[in-house]
Nucleic acid binder design. Sequence first.
RNA 1: GUGGGUGUAGCUCAACUGGUUAGAGCACCGGACUGUGGAUCCGGAGGUUGGGGGUUCGAGACCCCUCACUCACCCCA
Length: 416
Amino acid sequence: MKKQVSAIKGTKDILPRDVEKWQSVETAAKRIFELYGYREIRTPVFEATELFEKGTGQTSDIVIKEMYTFPDKAGRSLTLRPEYTPSVVRSIIENRLYLQPESLRFYYIGPMFRYDKPQKGRYRQFHQLDIEVFGEEDPAIDAEIVEMAHYLLQELQVTGTETFVNSVGCKKCRPAYLKDLKTEAKKAEESLCSNCQRKMATNPLRIFDCKVETCKKLAQKFPKITDYLCQECEQHFARFCEHLDFFEIEYTIEPRLVRGIDYYTKTTFEVASSKLGAQDAIIGGGRYDDMMKEFGGPDLCGIGFAMGMERLISAVPFTQMKEKFLYLAYMGDGAKRAGMELVRLLRREGIECLIEYREQSLKSQMSRANKLGAAWVLIIGEEEVKKGRYQLKDMETGDQEERTREEIMKIFGEIS
RNA sequence: GUGGGUGUAGCUCAACUGGUUAGAGCACCGGACUGUGGAUCCGGAGGUUGGGGGUUCGAGACCCCUCACUCACCCCA
């Protein structure tokens, strides 16, 4: 192999055959989100670094080791967004959107950037489909966004998914829980694996995720967040679950479900697919009641989720059906002109037409048309130009008929 | 950041414990068929075996380094 410039590690070209899939997922998502009253918002791909330091959180792995951060020419520190939520919150505050009568429900589709080590289902530039709702405290909205996610998955015919829900408490009740959890973990410290010993200090909730058998066993006896929730959080969680039951959504309460982002409060949830590898979460989200206020905005709660496009797409079964199109085969300059003119009119009628402008024998033009899957071939040579009658061939049946321009326009006028 | 696996034609893969000029299928181009696709047959083009170094009479294979891809850990969509 010659040395050549290649795509950056962890990034991928989305080629035409795949773009089709992307577009169909995007179209379905937009349609459904709009049905629920969401509107699209687009924010810049890069922001001031401090936005994520404050929003995503100084202690999150994302901020500590996964951000694409660089100085611009004026020396400002910028960051390619690793997630979307802080950007929307900034935009709402900056544009005073909370003073408008429109409901604060937004969706967004676009690239995110994280300096992770790539593996199956994880890329450095990846794409998310996000939705966010602000100012809705009622746990009914928590359940509604899960229901909306389920509806989208159903529309995309994604099967084999499992939904996990949890509550991570709030600023009032979580500290007490973490303290007790650490105390319990400390007691078992010597039996825990080295990894978990490290997590004890940094993120004790993560101990629940360990795959080592002895850790798993010990963790079963550790306190659960659900036993420590304050009255408000406990009620919120109970009513959230009630609403999920009301929507007849199957879910598993997973006390060890912790989103690795600092800002979550109360509800967190995740949808995992059995069709993926180790990175099996296709949707992750939760409530973040304090972020808006912490950014100096109004005291508005928020909730949202993100879907990983790459992961979602690999779980969607696609059946491809090609659009029918016409291939123009011509021989000689006169035929080329006549063909170009006719094809131009056909395109105005909504018929997809392809002419390839290269010197080829009729045989190879026919062969091309067949390979590309053309439904019809329009054949024009010197004789056809003289007569004003062209050969129209149906590639499936092999039938070929001589037609005038008017007849051809009429035939395709009826098809389209 | 840590570990494992894999790098041979555009794609999928061969090449016995190291041994002539690195092969095949599919795809591509052309011909059999001078203006008619798919099937068949015939032919053609396509490779510094990821890169560099080493061992050897001889390396695609063995050793070292490096790069890329990939899977997993950590974490996350």
